[in-house]
Nucleic acid binder design. Structure first.
Lengths: 176, 176
DNA sequence: AGCGATTAGATCGTGTGCGATCTAATTAGG
DNA sequence: CCTAATTAGATCGCACACGATCTAATCGCT
């Protein structure tokens, strides 16, 4: 495959030689089995679980024209008259550099409404549009359905949520 | 802020009206406090924890010129002579559409070496380059340091890793 | 009132993720 | 052998994330 020439890849260095360099340090990087390089790395397990969640939700939300993040925004808006971009950011742990393009796409799709606050023209208030309210109702049961489909006790899953919330809070403290 | 006119934002619909639409369904979307719309959503807690991990690692890895994903690739390569793109994908739960550009950037940065397998020209073998072996040694202790900095018992964190691995496996089963 | 500092969003560039599609290399079946 | 199917990567377009920077609106201080 590859186009034309099979992608040159200049032989800068032989592979075994590189591995030897590491071995020369006298200490393996991780004690895991060759097939599982991320033993003792909770960060990786969270990363992998998030990937898996995202893929599953993508399947379930795509028929409704939503991405996972767009779904989260709709859920966050479903409980309030409206939220400012900053408030959405607090709830979703995101900044305006992520939210502004996202909200513009959602507005273009008719899911939300953006409007400048009349008291403070710096503030943008975001609210559900009718299509957004409709679709958030359609996908309301998705999270519970997903968890129900897993072969794991619901009590364990609840405990895991508490633990993840705690972990996230601790990590945010540390990041300072 | 904003350029010229304060971003028109055509008033397609009033916000309260949208919220009313949802309330009319007779059932709140989630029973949580207004400030915490994601009660009972483990997916969100995992998402938020992953964001927090990623931000913290970004801080710690940036001085070494690594992103989090690049770091994972280096760790995966540190245990083997080399790995094919497909093998890396199995370990990292990623496909070639993500790995190929990533590996090309890492090769350009001198972190890894890519080479066509001589037996099967379809296969690309990836190995640590000297700079990659050097930097993976420098950041070897980062994961443990991060966890140590948290105000949580190490035993709890180990249990969480087991639980996350299980959750990821279950989600991947469900996704079909 | 006037002006520097602060604040809320927006913009830009880079790096993931991923669905869809493409190509070249290998394999399978007649 | 020769072609169809399979396989391993690569490419493309779009949607997050985020550091860095910008602008407009508001606030604070004199």
């Amino acid at each position: 495959m590859e186009n034309q020439t099979p992608d040159p890849i200049e032989p800068t260095l032989s592979g075994p030689q590189a591995a030897a360099l590491l071995a020369a340090r006298g200490q393996a990087v991780a004690p895991g089995v060759p097939g599982q390089p991320f033993a003792n790395m909770l960060c990786f397990s969270v990363y992998a679980a998030q990937l898996a969640f995202n893929r599953l939700y993508k399947q379930l939300l795509a028929p409704h024209g939503l991405t996972y993040l767009q779904y989260l925004v709709l859920v966050a808006l479903a409980q309030a008259q409206d939220r400012t971009v900053g408030e959405l950011g607090e709830v979703l742990f995101l900044e305006s550099n992520t939210l502004t393009p996202l909200l513009k796409r959602m507005e273009a799709a008719g899911l939300v409404v953006r409007r400048r606050d009349t008291q403070d023209e710096r503030v943008v208030r975001v609210a559900l549009a009718p299509a957004g309210a409709k679709v958030v109702g359609e996908v309301e049961c998705v999270p519970l359905d997903v968890l129900s489909a897993l072969d794991m006790p619901m009590g364990d899953l609840q405990q895991m949520k508490v633990a993840m919330d705690r972990l996230g809070a601790e990590l945010r403290k540390t990041g300072g």
